[in-house]
Design a protein around this nucleic acid. Structure first.
Length: 150
DNA sequence: AAGTCCTGCAACCGCAACTGG
DNA sequence: CCCAGTTGCGGTTGCAGGACT
């Protein structure tokens, strides 16, 4: 039996294909980075306006630092700005050329998890025996840039 | 060599904020 | 002013691929 019928919604979700990217870039080149929902109403793509905007802002826009890790300098800035503004990722991203709010958010989230792991390991003595989740045996990578509390 | 476990990232969701009719 | 549609934001999740056993 066929599981799901082909989406009645006719709205595509998930990873973007190269042709979709091309179509989106083309639209932005013609009309600028706006009118996102017209892309679907004109039948150019089966994506929601939200999805188009997100794709453009995070991956297609020119001058993005895609796929390269945050530098120590960028890391310092994020920490500092987060302390000042809180989780205002879009605002923080405006201080970091080539980085998006999603980049900053992901960076922060990963960092938080990393810190939590380290705390768990060094902090609570009893926890070391509890679950298999705690078998982070080897020393934490990048221990040098850890807390830096302010 | 082959699972299994983790991690990081792309993209989603819900709601808030804005816009124009 | 209200309402409907659109855009912006922050939190969250699913999964591909690397690390570990």
């Amino acid at each position: 039996m066929e599981g799901r019928r082909v989406e009645m919604s006719q709205i595509r979700k998930g990873p973007w294909k190269a042709e979709e990217d091309e179509m989106l870039i083309n639209h932005v080149n013609k009309h600028g980075p706006r009118d996102w929902s017209s892309i679907r109403s004109k039948g150019l793509l089966q994506r929601t306006g939200k999805s188009c905007r997100l794709r453009w802002v995070n991956k297609l826009r020119p001058n993005l630092k895609n796929g390269c890790k945050f530098t120590a300098e960028e890391e310092r800035m994020v920490i500092e700005l987060q302390a000042e503004f809180g989780n205002k990722w879009a605002k923080i991203a405006t201080y970091l050329p080539g980085r998006t709010d999603n980049d900053v958010k992901n960076f922060w989230s990963s960092r938080q998890k990393r810190l939590a792991r380290i705390l768990q390991k060094s902090g609570t003595p009893s926890s070391s025996s509890s679950s298999k989740l705690l078998k982070m045996k080897k020393e934490i990578p990048g221990f040098h840039d850890v807390p830096v509390e302010y």
